[in-house]
Design a protein around this nucleic acid. Structure first.
Length: 263
DNA sequence: AGATTCGGCGT
DNA sequence: ACGCCGAATCT
């Protein structure tokens, strides 16, 4: 069989090969596709894929995927946006070519950028742990959560719960539920709701922004017991499901082994 | 199953 | 016009 021509690629670490194949038929006949092969033989068919794999090893900022050469003067748009609007990367943006900070993969519904710590002695980034909680918040910031809903795997929207009446310009149950969940995520302090009645009359002055926009509530022992029961039951059914799955897998394995021996 | 190949979406 | 990647097709 005819070996494909894979050439060395000087712009990449030793051992990497480049291949160009011409399309033979179809509407795009005559065009070509470029592939790269790692020293271990893995195939790469795009720059983002290559970048993901190489990580910080090689800066592909000015690497031209098609030609396989470094092109001084190819980097600009990505960098400018990064300086001016770092958070846009947290949303949709480009698959950053390893110039962007990673986003913390936590359960919080807010994307939390990782703090880049350098070795500069004078660097005081996050020297005091208070800073995170001292950051100013918008009044009514919960409104941004409006319309967010949780759903299960079948995309059935989960029923919201009955909640104490809201305070402020938006008091729909779904927003309030999100606000409470967020409050639980973002602070280890107790979540009490708004404790001063004044907040209802003039929220702009009396609102406690680290508490969700609802009247103060108290959680009774009875409610705690109900919730404990729910968690217990959920754990039981999960345990059952895992057990059943384990047995099914075991049965499957032994069946395959028997078939292998008799074949 | 894995490799190859072209279509076609998004920019 | 082209990069990128899904998926049909081939081995």
């Amino acid at each position: 069989m005819m070996e494909k021509k894979r050439s060395d690629c000087p712009a990449l670490p030793p051992g990497w090969k480049k291949e160009e194949v011409i399309r033979k038929s179809g509407l795009s006949a005559g065009k070509s596709d470029v592939y790269y092969y790692s020293p271990s033989g893995k195939k790469f068919r795009s720059k983002p894929q290559l970048s993901r794999y190489l990580g910080n090893k090689v800066d592909l900022g000015c690497f031209d995927f098609r030609t396989g050469k470094m092109m001084p003067g190819k980097l600009q748009k990505n960098k400018q946006r990064l300086r001016h609007d770092p958070l846009s990367l947290a949303k949709g943006g480009k698959p950053d070519l390893n110039t962007a900070l990673p986003i913390r993969q936590t359960a919080s519904i807010f994307k939390q950028p990782v703090t880049k710590v350098t070795s500069h002695p004078g660097n005081k980034v996050k020297a005091d742990l208070q800073r995170a909680s001292e950051q100013p918040r918008q009044l009514f910031w919960e409104r941004r959560l409006k319309g967010l809903q949780s759903s299960d795997v079948t995309e059935e929207v989960l029923r919201t719960m009955d909640l104490p009446k809201g305070v402020g310009p938006d008091s729909s149950d779904d927003t309030l539920l999100s606000a409470i969940a967020s409050a639980l995520h973002m602070s280890s302090a107790p979540i009490t709701g708004q404790t001063t009645v004044a907040a209802e009359k003039n929220p702009a002055i009396w609102l406690n922004t680290s508490q969700p926009l609802c009247r103060a509530f108290t959680v009774t022992d009875e409610q705690i017991r109900e919730q404990e029961l729910k968690v217990y039951q959920a754990r039981r059914s999960l345990e059952d499901a895992l057990m059943a799955d384990g047995l099914a897998r075991a049965a499957e394995n032994t069946r395959e082994q028997l078939e292998g021996k008799t074949a």
